[in-house]
Design a protein around this nucleic acid. Structure first.
Lengths: 271, 271
DNA sequence: AATCAAGTTCCAAATAATGGAACAAGTCAT
DNA sequence: ATGACTTGTTCCATTATTTGGAACTTGATT
């Protein structure tokens, strides 16, 4: 047992939580793969011994978290979708934020996102878009690196210095575009600015030709850092435009935080 | 040990999965509750002993499947949403079906659903709607009883008689409206008709003032039964209209099944 | 100060997980 | 066909994890 340093390891699929951790790691291995996975594929991916893996997979199938096809390969099961649906539709924070996102969309005409920081990533929890294709909602649940997205950097600015350092230590600075931060050093400086200004920009750091302006929201009652953003294509949204939108974005974030504080309650005499 | 629950099962029972089963049961207890759950709430809901439950909860929190708020209550975590996002967006069957759903929507102007049977429920996997509110996509992942929905009954008609019997034995016939089936007997007769006709109707059996026509799809490569439907409000969609739409719905289902057989077929499913 | 409720920790005993190895069941190239 | 391989499944003695009752905090209430 290696539970002494349980703070240290959790980022990827390795077990920190005994049996459950292994099972979820295997589940994730199947879910993140692109296509049905045969037993041997998962064996290689997960590093578990044959016997163990076989039992783990049967259990996951029995629970409806995986489905076994006729050719014996494994696919994600429907139970995951149902569990996620329930937790999404019961998410009170998203519920509070939604009208504010809508308003921001009407003001700007561009796409508005709500995201929450989880480890080193931003998970998108809601989205309001102009031309709504069926695809659009697919974004919900998507995770992007925090260090190169507007909401991500905004959310990072809420963290206490030691926590922030810890997150950055676990971040892999992948150079998505020529504007992407290459190291913690430059990012730390920017986060300091963001903390002062109350808003963050993303100038094609994650995707070329995509810009956004974001503001942080501390979710009352939990330790979570969240944020909202207005995003648009570079050809349509100038930097001047983004700067002009910063104030309304900050104001929406403030309003959400305030309303959430009332509706989700402070819980107890917390900080 | 309190093994009362796991005794009665034959083939497709639950809680036979040792530790994982218990963990997921606890997770589900939190996720299906409406609001943050305190330790004692979950203790009552889950029936686990204090010590066990406490460890289970810590593990779930450590895995990101639950979040513990400052007031110590538990909420669904973001990991669930991310896992579901990945499995949804990589679902090849949905991908194949989508253009057909779109076409059906253009033809009818009404809402089109894609659902898959899981145990006794239909899980909605995709939806094409006319007036798209942000809400709409919330339906994805939602589960409704099979016995009183169009897609549900259509999917049931694909099952072999003994399997069907087994599913119905586990179904609770809740009387949602005055049109809802009250017992397996009448339902069995209707499923027989559906098998003959190739399509199913839902005349306000689940929700008052809501009607639909559906057709079954057997997903190639797996044992799954699925279906598509066109749904509309009773005031706008007459029974005659539904009958007229039955043929195109059947045709779309057939086309999806055919294309899926090629693209997900017995051969490799890889990229 | 005493009582009660909610949450956490402890630890010997029980049980479920472990994983190496043997065993089937296909595939493919002689 | 035959034998060499690859892939998936089962077995089972060993081991480590889970189990769960009870004791222990913590904090609010009377």
């Amino acid at each position: 047992m290696t539970n002494d340093m349980m703070v240290a390891d959790e980022g990827r699929g390795e077990a920190g939580t005994g049996t459950l951790g292994k099972a979820i790691a295997v589940l994730e291995a199947v879910v993140t793969a692109d296509g049905p996975q045969r037993f041997t594929d998962i064996l290689a991916r997960s590093g578990q011994p044959r016997g163990t893996l076989h039992r783990l997979l049967s259990h996951l199938v029995e629970e409806g978290l995986l489905i076994q096809r006729r050719d014996l390969s494994y696919e994600p099961g429907l139970r995951l979708l149902t569990l996620a649906y329930r937790s999404w539709s019961a998410n009170r924070f998203r519920d509070v934020a939604e009208p504010h996102l809508q308003r921001l969309h009407e003001l700007t005409g561009e796409t508005v996102h709500l995201g929450i920081l989880r480890e080193t990533e931003i998970v998108y929890v809601d989205k309001v878009e102009s031309r709504q294709t069926v695809r659009m909602s697919s974004q919900i649940g998507k995770a992007s690196p925090a260090y190169c997205t507007g909401i991500g950097k905004a959310a990072l600015s809420l963290l206490a210095q030691p926590v922030l350092k810890h997150v950055l230590a676990r971040t892999a600075f992948h150079p998505f575009t020529s504007h992407t931060h290459r190291s913690a050093a430059t990012l730390l400086a920017e986060v300091e600015e963001i903390r002062r200004d109350g808003h963050a920009f993303d100038c094609e750091e994650h995707e070329a030709e995509i810009r956004c302006v974001a503001a942080p929201i501390a979710i009352p009652g939990s330790e979570l850092a969240a944020g909202i953003s207005v995003t648009g294509p570079a050809y349509r949204v100038s930097m001047e435009q983004l700067v002009a939108w910063a104030a309304p974005v900050r104001e929406a974030a403030r309003a959400i935080a305030e309303e959430a504080a009332i509706r989700l309650g402070p819980g107890r005499g917390g900080p």
